[in-house]
Amino acid sequence: MKRCMFLLFSLFVAISLAGCGEGSQPAKQSEQASTQQPPSQSTEAKSEKATSYPLTIKDSTGQELTFAKAPERIVSASPAETEILFALGLGDKVVAVSDYDDYPEEAKSKPKVGGVLSPNEEAILAQSPDLVVGGISMKEDVVTKLRSLDLQVITLRPKVVQDIMENILLLGQITDHQVQAEELVSRMKADIGKVTDAVKDLKPEEKKKVYLEFSAGWTVGKGEFLDELITMAGGINIASDTQGWNPVSEEKIVKEDPDVILFAQGFTDEKTGETLDQTIRKRSGWDKIKAIRDNQVIGLDHNILSRPGPRITQGLYEMAKAIYPERLK
């Protein structure tokens, strides 16, 4: 069952959403630059933050990789990691992306290397990359095969928001863009602070019960960053008594009677043509749910909400605004 859920979620990611897995590991302490400089410092000051090569790091699989210099040709086989690389100012170094990469706009024009589960090996080799970045959906046997072809492959598998920020810092270190990475993480932390400050004085009885449906018939429980986002936003995830990605129990949702229902926008049933919110509203007995009675069924951009990249804190803000519009304008 767990294997089926992972495969379904991997498919979900393949259409630009995101997911699960183990957090990434930071580089060895001895290899990190020691001087912390604010973003506004001079070029000379910034150079003190330069990565020292050779650099050895461990990725989320525990695999050690050593880089003799900053990568010049990067293939990203995951939409979230592509967003990170572009946000770090590395768009000119990204020579190819997955078939599903659509943000930022410049990523659309990059050569494609196939899907996120099993990208095309020949297409990757054709780009002569010195770094291949994979996300949560890249199969382990694919990673092993690519490494057997003498490719430097790093895989990132974040579970919580902190993992996402550590992945950004790790990619910044590998690519000698540490200052940019720290600036980006600082902005993300500021976004988190705005949300948590807005909801921190909520009394227990004021906290709203939230049900999130990220794909038709599927929700999320403990151990994944979408559950964490609901908590950060001041909500109570009614599926938090479950672990990971779970099929929806329609009777349970009716019983829990959520105040707010959040769903991922952009999905349409191929057979009926119904949008996800239409499907949700038509379920038997769900018209009695408070969220539906009060018209608190709110769609959120599925890419922003679920890609474990630099826009995840924007997703947090939009989620909190949907739950407590009076607190976040």
Rank of each mutant, 00 (worst) to 15 (best):
T196E: 15
M138L: 04
G266I: 06
D176E: 14
H177M: 14
V142R: 09
D277N: 09
E318N: 13
P204Y: 07
K209C: 08
Y324F: 04
D130H: 05
L328N: 14
I164E: 03
D99Q: 06
L262R: 13
G135T: 03
L90N: 08
I124M: 02
R187L: 02
T175S: 15
I164R: 09
D277T: 06
T175V: 02
A70C: 01
P258E: 12
A70Y: 01
P26S: 07
K208F: 08
G134C: 11
P39A: 14
E122H: 00
D99K: 04
I253S: 15
S76F: 05
P38F: 13
A320V: 01
E166T: 07
S306F: 09
E224S: 07
Q29C: 14
I238R: 11
Q178W: 11
S47N: 07
D59T: 00
I164V: 09
E318W: 12
D287P: 04
I236G: 14
Q127Y: 03
D227I: 00
V210L: 04
K282G: 14
R281P: 06
E256G: 04
I298A: 06
G235P: 10
R157M: 03
S128F: 06
E205M: 02
E182H: 13
Q32T: 10
G234F: 00
L125T: 01
G115D: 15
S34V: 14
T66A: 09
S16D: 15
T51R: 06
V142E: 07
K2Q: 13
K49H: 05
P26N: 11
E250R: 13
S47E: 07
P119T: 08
Y100A: 10
T196F: 06
A233H: 04
S109F: 10
I168H: 09
S109Y: 14
V260R: 09
L65T: 04
H302I: 07
P129D: 04
E83P: 00
P26L: 12
A107K: 00
T313L: 11
V143C: 06
E182D: 10
S118E: 15
K203P: 00
K2V: 01
L156C: 10
H302S: 10
D92C: 13
E224Y: 11
N120C: 03
R147Q: 10
V97Q: 10
K139L: 11
D287C: 03
I289N: 03
D59C: 00
K207E: 14
Q296E: 07
Q162V: 11
I192H: 15
N246C: 01
G62F: 00
G266Q: 12
G23R: 11
K329R: 07
A126V: 05
K321F: 01
Y324Q: 10
Q162H: 12
E44A: 13
K2M: 07
P54W: 05
